[in-house]
Design a protein around this nucleic acid. Structure first.
Length: 420
RNA sequence: GUGAGCGUGGCCAAGUGGUAAGGCGCCAGGUUGUGGCCCUGGAGAUCGAGGGUUCAAAUCCCUUCGCUCACCCCA
C-alpha cells in the first residue's frame, strides 16, 4: 500500500454516504426552520483572526493550528473553529445594519493538528449556529434548542444537556481568585497536570478527569455561585427559559470551555456513555468577541457540533438510516449489435429520468449477476432476438418475471413499475 | 507532546524458527441468451519497511513507519 489519507483524515466511502446525507440535510432543515441562514466562509483565514478570537494562549492556537505562509508572505490558518470566521463575516459585510439579531448557520470542515483518537480527527466537520446582536437569555435558549432539536430529529435519544455560567469580565476575576485560593489550600493533593493548570488556567482545574482530583472538584466553589447581579439574572432567566421550552438540563459547575471568548452561558450536549463523555455539541455566549475583533460591542451566542461524533452515535444507537435509491435498471446486452443498442438504450433511459447503467461486456450470466448485485430492480435484455422485433426483454428481478416491450415504450413501462 | 496495544492478499483471519491454511469478496466455467442457492476452477501476499541473529525467520533481536485507544485538549 502506497499512499494513505493523511493522519487524522478519512475518506467517506459510498456505503457511508447515507449518514452524511442525513446529518447534513437535516442540519439545513432544522436550522432554516429556526430562522438561521447559511454562511460559508473560506477554509483558511488570516492567522491573526483565530489568535485574537480564540485566544493566543489557548491550546488550540498554541499547538493545534494548521498555519502556513503563502507565496505572498501572508500568514494563514486553516479554519480552526467556526465562530471567529462568522463574526469576521458579520463585521466585514456590515451585518449590524440588518435587523438584529442575525442568525447564521454553517456546515464546514475544521482543522486541528491533534493526535487522532476515537471521535477526534485532524479534519472534521462542524455544524454550527450563531445568533449575533442580542444579549437576552432567550436567544441563548434558542441556540441550545436548535442543537437539541437537531440531534433529536437526526434520531439520537440518550443525550444530556449540561449548562453552566462562567460570568463575565465584571465577576469572573473575583471568582478566579476564589477558585485559586481554594485550590492553593490543597495543592499537594492535585495531580501533576493540575499543578500546572493552577497558575496557567485555573478554570481548567474543574474538568480534570484524574480520579485523585475529583473530590477536590466536587467541593470547589462553583462559578454560578459567584456571579455579578447581571450575570446572575441572565443565568436565572436562561434556566427558566429552558424549562419553558421543555428542555431538561443538568447544571454542571465543572463545565468550562477551552476558548477564551466565552462569557456567561456555556453548554454541552453529550451522550451518556460509561466512563468518559465525548461531547457532541459545545457552545456558549461570547459577548466580547466582536469587540475583540475590532467591531463595536456586540453580543453573540452559538454552538459548534462535530458531525463525525453525531454519526458515531447514530451508529452506536443503531438509528435506522435509509439507503439512497440504487440504480434501477441494468441493461444487459448480447453481441456487438446488442452492445450498441444497449448503449443507446441506457442513454435514452437516463434522459427519461430513469437510473440506468450498461452492464460490463461479459458473458450474459455474469451480466445478470452484475445486475442483481448492483441493487437494480430490473434488467433490460437486448440481443439479436430482440433487435429483430424492435423490442427488449424487461425482467423484474424481484419477481423473476419478464416481458418483451417495444423499445419506444420501455422508459414508459419502467417508470410505471413500483419503486420509481 | 506522553503512555499502551496492534500491523499476514480488497476485507476477516490461521500460522510463534523449516520456507504462507481457511472464509468473505472478485473473475471464469457448470453446453445452446437469464441473476440471487449450489458445485468446480482461477487471479491476488516482497507476511508494514529496513537491518541483525541463524544452515533456515511471518515467527527471535534492534530500528523505523503506520494504525488504534487513552491522556493533554476539543467537536
Amino acid at each position: 500500500m502506497q499512499f494513505q489519507a493523511p493522519r487524522g483524515t478519512f475518506d467517506v466511502l459510498p456505503e457511508d454516504q447515507k449518514y452524511w446525507r442525513l446529518v447534513t440535510s437535516t442540519a439545513e432543515e432544522v436550522a432554516s426552520r429556526a430562522g438561521f441562514r447559511r454562511l460559508d466562509t473560506p477554509v483558511f483565514e488570516d492567522s491573526a483572526l483565530f489568535e485574537r478570537g480564540v485566544g493566543s494562549t489557548t491550546d488550540i492556537i498554541e499547538k493545534e493550528t494548521y498555519s502556513f505562509e503563502d507565496r505572498g508572505g501572508d500568514m494563514l490558518t486553516l479554519r480552526a473553529e467556526g465562530t471567529a470566521p462568522a463574526c469576521r463575516a458579520y463585521l466585514q459585510h456590515g451585518m449590524r445594519n440588518l435587523p438584529q439579531p442575525v442568525r447564521l448557520y454553517y456546515l464546514c470542515p475544521v482543522f486541528r493538528y491533534e493526535r487522532p483518537q476515537s471521535g477526534r480527527y485532524r479534519q472534521h466537520n462542524q455544524f454550527g449556529v450563531e445568533i449575533i446582536g442580542e444579549s437576552d437569555a432567550s436567544v441563548d435558549a434558542d441556540v441550545i434548542e436548535a442543537g437539541w432539536r437537531y440531534l433529536e430529529t437526526v434520531g439520537l435519544s440518550d443525550l444530556t444537556l449540561y449548562v453552566n455560567s462562567i460570568g463575565d469580565r465584571a465577576c469572573r476575576p473575583e471568582y478566579m481568585r476564589e477558585l485559586r485560593s481554594y485550590y492553593e489550600g490543597h495543592s499537594e493533593r492535585l495531580c501533576a497536570d493540575c499543578q500546572r493548570r493552577l497558575d496557567r488556567n485555573a478554570l481548567r482545574l474543574l474538568d480534570c478527569k484524574n480520579d485523585q482530583c475529583q473530590p477536590l472538584i466536587d467541593e470547589a466553589p462553583a462559578s454560578f455561585d459567584h456571579l455579578c447581579d447581571e450575570c446572575e439574572a441572565h443565568w436565572d432567566r436562561l434556566r427558566k427559559y429552558l424549562g419553558i421550552i421543555g428542555l431538561d438540563f443538568q447544571t454542571e459547575h465543572r463545565l468550562v470551555r477551552g476558548l477564551d471568548y466565552y462569557t456567561r452561558t456555556v453548554f454541552e450536549i453529550a451522550p451518556q456513555l460509561e466512563g468518559r463523555t465525548v461531547t457532541i455539541v459545545g457552545g456558549g455566549r461570547y459577548d466580547g468577541l466582536i469587540e475583540e475583533l475590532g467591531g463595536p460591542p456586540t453580543p453573540g451566542v452559538g454552538f459548534g457540533m462535530g458531525l463525525e461524533r453525531v454519526i458515531y452515535n447514530i451508529k452506536r444507537e443503531e438509528v435506522p438510516v435509509s439507503e439512497p435509491s440504487p440504480t434501477k435498471v441494468v441493461v444487459v446486452h448480447l453481441g456487438n449489435a446488442g452492445k450498441s443498442a444497449g448503449l443507446k438504450l441506457s442513454s435514452g433511459l437516463r434522459r427519461s429520468g430513469i437510473a440506468a447503467t450498461l452492464a460490463p461486456p461479459r458473458g450474459m450470466r455474469s451480466q445478470m449477476r452484475y445486475a442483481a448485485n448492483s441493487g437494480a430492480t430490473h434488467a433490460v435484455i437486448i440481443g439479436d432476438n430482440e433487435l429483430e422485433k424492435g423490442v427488449a426483454t424487461v425482467r423484474d428481478l424481484g419477481r423473476s418475471e419478464q416481458a418483451e416491450i417495444a423499445l419506444n415504450y420501455i422508459a414508459d413501462h419502467l417508470s410505471k413499475q413500483d419503486g420509481n
